[in-house]
Write a protein that binds this DNA or RNA. Structure first.
Lengths: 224, 224
DNA sequence: AGCCCGCCTGAATAGTTGTTCAGTTCTTGA
DNA sequence: TCAAGAACTGAACAACTATTCAGGCGGGCT
């Protein structure tokens, strides 16, 4: 055996893999999932089309990993925001606001990850992604229920419904289109957060209070 | 001119067009939008593939018309249910319940119409469909607001969010899977309707009352 | 009956992309 | 420097379906 992967080579391979993933992510953020085609992604990553297949068995695997990566980032952000909140209701508000802000700050990517038609099967990956995020929201709802702040309910279904509402209202085809304006963006985030909190049973007045509290820290996320 | 379309021919042409659309609808209901391919649809409709193109300029047009047709049916059902309700809040509850029941009774078709990846561009048609349904819901929310039953709000955004919540919770990939059972189906419909009503500001207790009232007439729709 | 014209057929066409692979280049260890 | 093998290249391949069109078929007019 006269050839072994030296540390330097391992690093280069890892860098290349990251570059391909990053290229895919950039392409998705710019042109949606339909722009994530092997040849263009390879060009972006400065490799040949064939090389992509040395790192990902198929396009489906590439996109699945992209979805998983974005999903991990989002989940971490949600946890960070919720854990920083003073109580279970605030945590729920923070979690919802975080989802809203994230989704809005990368609408095209979010749409691609969530719902855009793709020519390969990535349902499993999307399912896993939603399951994770929905699970996190569900556990936050659950905490608020246990604390006696909300009526008992099917938290899994509620979490799913909440995410559906956020996504449809903010990145779906009927989403308002003037969200470049920061003020409008904040309004939209507040509105959907308010809807979400009321949906799970928070009283209107209290929900309004939670919303403004949650939006303050979330504003810092918009820049990030 | 020695050839003119006789009445009989006109009828046959119309029947064939309907047959093709019905075949497409059946295919979508059975196997989702991916099953709506020209050749299989043509077989179902007892015509040759080429004939489909005498009635629809392209596959995109065929699917667009399918979407429009289903959308029309749904809109009519919503209006019927809402108009039969005694007051604006009941009407809203009835509208939401109707959407939920419809969507659940044809989950595969609904998923195809709403969100399933299609290999041709039908975004315009889907957009129009959502706009119609969302507009109807929005006007029902608006009526309840004007009647003083709900707080003032962005009704268009609220309607969009409501539909997103319904769709994601009932036909999305995280939707519960035991909905064949009528009792579970009713539970799911009630749960999401309750969420929707609370989201727009109906008090929990009142919302629960509206839900049970709305589900009674809607039960008859399940069979239809 | 006979001619005409348009509808219908379905095999062939065409365009799009994911995937492969033979040949080339680069890296390693002696 | 060189042999060996891994990594990379990119043009060719493959598969899938929407779409077309030349030729047949049948209904409509005189």
């Amino acid at each position: 055996m006269v050839y072994r992967r030296t540390h330097q080579v391992v690093k280069r391979l890892a860098a290349r893999r990251s570059a391909i993933l990053a290229a895919a992510r950039d392409a998705a953020a710019e042109g949606g999932m339909s722009a994530v085609q092997i040849a263009p992604v390879a060009v972006r990553a400065n490799v040949a089309a064939g090389t992509v297949y040395r790192y990902f068995p198929s396009k489906a695997d590439l996109i699945s990993e992209l979805i998983a990566e974005v999903s991990r980032d989002e989940l971490a952000a949600i946890r960070r925001a919720a854990d920083a909140a003073p109580g279970p209701s605030s945590a729920l508000a923070a979690a919802v606001t975080t989802v809203a802000v994230h989704v809005l700050s990368q609408r095209r990517l979010a749409w691609g990850i969530l719902a855009e038609p793709v020519d390969v099967d990535v349902t499993a990956s999307r399912l896993a992604s939603r399951r994770e995020i929905a699970g996190e929201i569900a556990s936050r709802i659950d905490a608020a229920v246990r604390a006696g702040h909300l009526p008992a309910q099917d938290t899994a279904l509620a979490a799913t419904a909440l995410l559906g509402a956020l996504h449809e209202a903010l990145v779906g085809p009927l989403a308002p289109d003037n969200l470049e304006d920061p003020a409008r963006l904040r309004d939209a985030v507040q509105t959907v957060t308010l809807l979400a909190l009321r949906a799970v049973g928070v009283m209107d007045a209290r929900a309004r209070g939670l919303v403004v509290q949650a939006v303050l820290p979330a504003k810092t996320l918009v820049g990030a």
